[in-house]
Design a binder for these strands. Structure first.
Lengths: 211, 211
DNA sequence: GCCACAATCTTGACAGCGTCAAGATTACGC
DNA sequence: GCGTAATCTTGACGCTGTCAAGATTGTGGC
């Protein structure tokens, strides 16, 4: 068992994981390069061997965030193959669950802290992959008469925005506690989705009702 | 003309305006107490006579943000009295316009940087006033058969989330440039709103088409 | 009108931050 | 095995939020 080799061995990854842990424990404003380095057991300037600046670390963390988000949604969708409406509801709920499970990580992933996308192909690839998944769900729903006919990209952005906005408002405590306790988040989500659907959303699909 | 009195006279307000100007010029991460103090022509610790900490300044800036947002929307709605659908469309577009006009101010206002609402009654009052305006628009639309019957609060949150999410995604450059240039933001907004409305949204209401 | 008090503002200090430069340590290709 | 490149440490700089101590000024009580 090596005690303290001069070279960490997997520092880049360790910093990303440290960053995610810091986000989970103390939120976005607590994330710093020096703290991530401390947690990884290296000196304060060591990260600069792997990241050009703080932005680069954040981009890497956001990329990992998108990867987890995609996997959650893909898993939820895969479980409901052949049932587009269920895929839509469960996919959306997976999005919400990720946000609730790690709010700070969700925020830093979706809050565009990574600006110049062109410089970060891995991030771009993950966002495209995730949007592609959404586009496919939307197209399947349209084919099944669950969603209205329209360009799939257009409808996909509308739906994404509706779900994302709901999550963002709740996460940022913009929705008054009175309203939020009267209508639970699952109900708010289903009510939003039901504005888009042509068929009735069965109450049996209520997210927390199942499971 | 007083040259440099020891007491500023209206420092609290000057700091808020300085902060908003900094946000407009260099974005959220450029906002600092010291820079706002510098811009107001005062020493670096002077703000502490008016704000307990940086959070308090941000809360004041967010309160002003909500005030401007409310006034924009209220003005747009007032211009279309008696036409609920137009009020809905123009109110939503006013929301979008505020976000586009000053993205950083919009972000800091809506991104829940102000956490403990209970300590800031002015902010709470503005958020409630704004939500009340939205709730009234929704109720009027329901009475006119423009929106589906449902608890007004519930539908209001859904609509708010849908519009807010769209803006947030576009502002954070999460929507691919390809999709955004194919479907303009006004079209994306109208497409989202038309998911909620029972009547067709006339193309004549296209936000940038008018004006 | 004057004085004590409170509000306001300045100066100075501290720790933590992002970032860079210089140097130490180690892995790896030839 | 050796030189080069990658990795990591140490030290420094300016910026930040925040606090303490003191200077300056407005204000109410007499």
């Amino acid at each position: 068992m090596p005690k303290k080799p001069y070279h960490h061995g997997d520092l880049r990854n360790a910093l990303i994981q440290a960053g995610i842990a810091i986000l989970a424990e103390d939120g976005v404003k607590a994330l710093s390069l020096r703290r991530a380095a401390r947690r990884a057991g290296v000196s304060h300037a060591a990260p600069y061997a792997h990241f050009a600046d703080k932005q680069a670390l954040i981009v890497a963390i956001a990329t990992e965030g998108y990867r987890r988000l995609y996997e959650r949604m893909a898993a939820a969708v895969a479980q409901r193959a052949g049932d587009p409406l269920r895929q839509l509801v469960d996919g959306a709920w997976a999005y919400v669950e990720f946000a609730l499970a790690d709010p700070a990580h969700f925020r830093i992933t979706l809050s565009g802290v990574a600006e110049k996308d062109a410089d970060h192909p891995a991030l771009v690839a993950m966002t495209q992959q995730s949007f592609e998944l959404l586009r496919r769900i939307v197209a399947d729903c349209q084919a099944a008469g669950v969603l209205r006919p329209a360009p799939a990209d257009l409808l996909a952005v509308s739906l994404w925005g509706a779900v994302h906005g709901l999550v963002d408002l709740v996460l940022n405590e913009q929705v008054s506690q009175a309203v939020l306790s009267r209508f639970s988040l699952p109900r708010l989500l289903l009510h939003t989705l039901s504005q888009f659907t042509l068929v009735e959303v069965p109450r049996s699909l209520h997210p927390t009702a199942r499971r």
